[in-house]
């Protein structure tokens, strides 16, 4: 398997608060890495510094793109532009992430316009193809976001991210605002698109059940540190760190006979190494 992304000792602090503390991991192509943790654990700051949506303090993010391995933090904004095509993001809130005054056609076309791809007719064609890929009606293109449900909007968000044919897609809590039944449809869609297009996902989530179903590898974050990482089943079946045990014990089981008995933080060893 080819490696696509390699993060080494990434640090980011806001003021004197250390939010991401020396995080390192590798991601293979066409695999899915889940990043879990409570709110405030630094998940979002981590992925944003990888994308250079914010600039980290130290550490390196190396990406194996069309042009070979490159350190994302040594590139200028101009040099970064072609890489922006390869790395895209799907956001959490399907309501806030779409401009209410743009039609779906304009929303989906915008990334192509920014990267100056194709002519008008070709772009229109691409939008139609993408709508079909995310299982939306072609007539959706002329409509505005308010006409769609949360699940349909998330499909529009996915189409916008994928229209540039990225290789790495960052999903920041992309299904957590959705109902369970809609959530499972969107996860099925993301999986189908992954096997069709060979996508690599960085999947940020706080729902461990979703991560277990959807991801190959998982990274457990606790107050800015990675406390555990490895293949999903290994980490979930035999967690090494008490924090992972705490997270796992808090999952409500759909079996009424398995009573919820969350571990008490006070009895756990949550010290960071």
């Amino acid at each position: 398997m080819t490696q696509l992304l390699s993060v080494k000792n990434l640090c980011k602090s806001f003021g004197d608060q250390l939010i991401v503390n020396s995080v390192s991991f590798d991601v293979n192509e066409s695999s899915t890495l889940g990043i879990v943790g409570e709110s405030g654990s630094g998940k979002t700051t981590l992925v944003r510094s990888i994308l250079r949506a914010i600039d980290p303090d130290s550490g390196s993010v190396r990406y194996n793109g069309e042009a070979g391995w490159q350190n994302l933090h040594e590139l200028s904004a101009k040099e970064l532009l072609p890489l922006r095509r390869e790395v895209q993001m799907i956001f959490q809130d399907p309501f806030a992430s779409l401009n209410p005054r743009m039609t779906v056609q304009t929303i989906l076309e915008e990334p192509l316009v920014i990267h100056d791809l194709g002519d008008k007719a070709w772009r229109k064609q691409r939008v139609m193809e993408m709508l079909e890929k995310v299982q939306l009606d072609p007539s959706s293109a002329a409509r505005f976001p308010h006409a769609f449900s949360g699940g349909q909007r998330q499909r529009i968000g996915i189409a916008r991210a994928l229209i540039l044919e990225p290789r790495l897609v960052v999903c920041d809590e992309s299904v957590s605002a959705l109902d369970v039944s809609v959530q499972s449809q969107i996860l099925d869609l993301l999986k189908a698109l992954q096997s069709e297009l060979g996508l690599t996902y960085l999947f940020v989530a706080h729902d461990l059940r979703v991560v277990r179903e959807f991801c190959d590898e998982v990274l457990v974050m606790y107050s800015g540190n990675v406390v555990e990482q490895g293949p999903v089943e290994e980490v979930f079946n035999s967690p090494d760190h008490d924090y992972t045990r705490l997270l796992l014990s808090a999952i409500p089981s759909p079996d009424p006979d398995e009573k919820l008995d969350p571990l008490d933080r006070a009895t756990l060893n949550l010290q960071l190494a």
Partner: peptide, 24 residues
């Protein structure tokens, strides 16, 4: 609760249960 979750009668309830992450 035990009747509904362990032996759902309605297809929609079955669907909701099958939609649970990890239900596969």
């Amino acid at each position: 609760v035990k009747q509904i979750l362990k032996n759902p009668q309605h297809p929609y309830t079955c669907h909701l249960l099958a939609s649970m992450p990890g239900a596969e």
